[in-house]
Amino acid sequence: MMNGIRQSPPDYFPTEYWHSLEDGRIQCDVCPRACKLREGQQGLCFVRARHQDQIVLTSYGRSSGFCIDPIEKKPLNHFLPGTPVLSFGTAGCNLACKFCQNWDMSKSREMDTLADQAVPGQLAQAALATGCRSLAFTYNDPVIFLEYARDVALAAREQGIRSVAVSAGYICEAPREAFFQYMDAANIDLKAFTESFYKKICGGSLQPVLETLKYLKHETEVWFEITTLLIPGENDSDHELNSMCEWIVEHLGVDVPIHFSAFHPDWKMMEHSHTPADTLTRARNIAIKKGIRYAYTGNVHDSQGGSTWCHNCGQLLIERDWYQMGVWNLKSGCCNRCGEKQAGVFEELPGDWGSKRIPVRMKS
Results as ranks from 00 to 15, higher is better:
335 C>Q: 03
153 A>R: 07
61 G>I: 08
302 D>K: 11
62 R>T: 00
183 M>H: 08
203 G>S: 12
22 E>I: 08
181 Q>N: 09
47 V>A: 07
301 H>E: 13
157 R>N: 07
20 S>M: 09
6 R>A: 06
138 T>L: 03
172 C>W: 01
257 P>T: 08
320 R>A: 04
169 G>V: 11
37 L>C: 11
150 R>K: 13
70 P>L: 01
129 A>C: 01
166 V>L: 02
208 P>W: 15
114 L>F: 05
108 S>Y: 00
319 E>G: 04
175 P>G: 04
307 S>H: 05
1 M>H: 12
89 G>T: 02
133 R>W: 14
221 E>Y: 06
117 Q>C: 01
29 D>I: 02
29 D>C: 05
123 L>D: 05
197 F>I: 06
90 T>Y: 01
76 L>R: 11
305 G>R: 07
217 K>R: 15
22 E>G: 13
152 V>S: 04
334 C>D: 02
209 V>A: 05
59 S>V: 03
230 L>P: 09
12 Y>N: 02
7 Q>H: 13
202 C>S: 11
17 Y>K: 08
107 K>Q: 08
133 R>Y: 14
301 H>K: 10
241 L>S: 13
278 D>H: 13
245 C>R: 15
273 S>F: 00
172 C>N: 10
190 L>T: 08
276 P>W: 06
129 A>G: 03
94 N>S: 12
30 V>K: 02
31 C>Q: 04
347 E>I: 12
117 Q>D: 01
145 F>Y: 08
98 K>G: 02
153 A>T: 15
7 Q>A: 14
103 W>M: 06
330 L>Q: 00
84 P>G: 03
130 T>Y: 02
246 E>K: 15
302 D>G: 10
187 N>Y: 03
293 R>M: 00
14 P>W: 06
128 L>M: 00
299 N>K: 12
266 D>F: 13
352 D>A: 09
78 H>Y: 09
356 K>T: 10
58 T>Y: 05
285 N>K: 14
218 H>M: 11
253 G>S: 15
350 P>R: 00
168 A>C: 14
115 A>Y: 01
123 L>S: 06
185 A>C: 12
186 A>K: 10
340 E>C: 07
232 P>A: 07
109 R>A: 02
180 F>R: 03
165 A>C: 08
97 C>I: 04
30 V>P: 00
206 L>T: 10
60 Y>A: 09
82 G>P: 02
254 V>I: 14
8 S>T: 11
56 V>L: 07
